[in-house]
């Protein structure tokens, strides 16, 4: 659902940590017609300019809290990512990314479902790797975006 609109087009920016460019970030929406408990949010398949950035180098910012990695997000079992709200995905990459256009392949992994599914027990033990299609919820295909680096001032910088 809303495949082409999950990443905000003008949101791709570098971000700073300890005075250095630590990676890039962009704004996302939830690929569903409803919000979900935040814990169900299982990370992203992100391939930028042919490099895959796994869940382990991603952080997620929502609900006015500092960015959290997906091990922490997993524990947010009573927190809700509301349908209306945009979140920020942080991807750690020393030095960030260059000016100009970038091609991003993108898939969200959210373990929301219509009740009990045959995969439940397996996903408790081994959550699906984002990009495998499993847990991709309402956007079953990997989506490709062309994004231009926004060189505006990083509010968190």
């Amino acid at each position: 659902m809303l495949d082409n609109f999950l990443v905000r087009k003008d949101s791709l920016m570098n971000f700073f940590e300890n005075g250095k460019v630590a990676g890039f970030k962009f704004a996302v929406r939830n690929a569903n017609y409803r919000g979900v408990f935040l814990s169900l949010h299982n990370g992203y398949y992100i391939k930028l300019d042919d490099v895959v950035y796994p869940r382990e180098v991603q952080k997620f910012e929502i609900n006015g809290k500092s960015p959290r990695d997906f091990e922490e997000i997993k524990k947010a079992v009573y927190e809700h990512w509301d349908y209306d709200d945009e979140a920020i995905v942080y991807v750690y990459k020393d030095g960030g990314i260059s000016s100009g256009k970038h091609v991003m392949e993108f898939q969200q992994s959210v373990l929301a479902a219509y009740g009990y599914m045959p995969t439940d027990e397996e996903w408790v033990k081994n959550p699906p790797v984002p990009g495998s299609g499993a847990g991709s919820d309402k956007t079953v295909h990997i989506v490709t975006y062309e994004l231009e680096l926004n060189e505006g001032i990083d509010q968190n910088g």
Binding site: V36, F37, S39, L40, K74, K75, V77, L111, A112, A113, Y114, G115, Y116, M117, D120, E121, W123, V124, P127
Partner: peptide, 10 residues
Amino acid sequence: MDVLQFRDHV
């Protein structure tokens, strides 16, 4: 009903 809400069990 999202049965994986707690993530450590169904």
